[in-house]
């Protein structure tokens, strides 16, 4: 594996992480805490939306994010030829 390939791989990984952590931040800190009052004006069934993000929605998003990251990284591993076996 060449030097450039390794550093390209690492930058691509960091970009992917930055994207995922932005989503992570938005659904929990932003929707669940900072913007909870305005979002609570919207209803999701019997849930206020901000409350729903804080107690349900953020958790579902976290699960999806990890599997998304894992599958994108598997593709990146192969693309940059740094995968195992």
């Amino acid at each position: 594996m060449s030097e450039t390939s390794a550093s390209d791989y690492w930058s691509a990984n960091k970009r992917l992480i930055a994207f995922c952590l932005t989503v992570w931040f938005v659904v929990s800190y932003l929707f669940g805490i900072v913007l909870v009052e305005p979002l609570n004006a919207i209803s999701l069934g019997g849930y206020k939306l901000g409350f729903w993000f804080a107690q349900q929605g953020s958790i579902y998003t976290f699960v999806v994010l990890i599997f998304f990251y894992a599958s994108r990284m598997n593709a990146l591993d192969r693309k940059h030829d740094v995968h195992e076996d």
Partner: peptide, 13 residues
């Protein structure tokens, strides 16, 4: 709820 689940995102990445 958020704190004890969101940490796994950090852990995985």
């Amino acid at each position: 709820l958020m704190g004890w689940t969101g940490g796994y995102v950090l852990l995985a990445m």
